[in-house]
Amino acid sequence: MRPQAGRPAAPRPGTGRPVPAGRRPAPAAAGAVRSARRMPNPRLTGLGGGLFSGVLMLALGGLDLLLFGGSLTVYGVLFLPVCLLTALWVRASDLLSAPVVVPIAFAVGLLPVADGGHGFGARMMGLVTALATQVGWLYAGTLAAGVVVLGRGVRRAVARRRAASRP
């Protein structure tokens, strides 16, 4: 939009470029945008996303065991933001790896939380039981990562198409 006749456009803070008259953001929204821009924006490779989510879920599983006695519901709730962060922080060229690595991270993080006796067989049985009973959290996290990846991929394709159509 162009500035209206008789009203000069105010310069954008820090850029010196004018903001169109009808496009000025509300003060609260501008503060939220500034704080979002200060958030970290790492770009993880597919392997890095897997390591990030796996190590973080293992740490959260141990923390859940210490603080809540191994509550699987708390673990499932903590899994959802990890899925979203992994899907948001993975590189654009490795987008498809995010929905693949988050279920693996869920299983890795269940190791300290899953009920099981002493010994390898009892621990694996507890892990399989926890995976079977907490499949809702697993599906929800994987679906959330898939939706974020799909949105990022569509946005990337639209931007590429617009760039190709410009002379």
Rank of each mutant, 00 (worst) to 15 (best):
A105F: 10
R156A: 15
P81T: 10
M1S: 15
G50W: 09
L44Y: 05
L110W: 10
P112S: 07
R152I: 08
L88C: 05
P99Q: 04
A164H: 07
L51C: 08
A140C: 06
R123K: 12
L85F: 15
Y75E: 07
R160F: 04
A144E: 04
D115M: 11
R24C: 02
W137V: 04
V101I: 08
V128T: 13
F52E: 09
A98S: 07
V102E: 00
G151A: 15
Y75I: 02
R91S: 11
R24P: 01
L60A: 02
R23M: 08
W89A: 02
G109H: 13
G116Q: 06
A159G: 12
W137D: 01
R155W: 01
F52Q: 12
V154D: 14
L60E: 07
G70W: 04
T86H: 03
A29C: 03
L47Q: 12
L150R: 14
A21T: 14
L65V: 14
Q4M: 03
G31N: 08
P27Y: 12
L63S: 07
A140D: 01
G121F: 09
G22Y: 01
V148A: 06
G116L: 02
L95D: 04
L150K: 05
A21H: 14
R24H: 15
G62D: 01
V33D: 14
G119A: 03
T45F: 02
V158G: 04
T45I: 07
V148H: 05
P3M: 00
R38A: 13
A157F: 09
L65Y: 06
Y139P: 00
G22S: 08
V74H: 04
A5Q: 13
R166Y: 09
P27W: 06
A5G: 12
W89V: 06
L95I: 09
N41F: 09
L127A: 00
M39W: 01
V55D: 12
P11V: 06
G50C: 00
P103H: 06
R43W: 03
L84A: 15
T129I: 03
A107E: 02
G46L: 00
T133C: 10
A10Y: 04
L78R: 04
L150M: 05
T86S: 08
T15C: 00
S97C: 03
V33T: 14
A107S: 12
N41C: 06
V101T: 11
P25F: 05
A29Y: 11
A10P: 07
T142Y: 13
P13Q: 09
L96Y: 11
A132E: 11
V154H: 03
A114V: 14
D115P: 15
T45E: 00
R162M: 11
L85P: 02
L143V: 12
V55F: 07
R34S: 07
R161L: 08
A32Q: 15
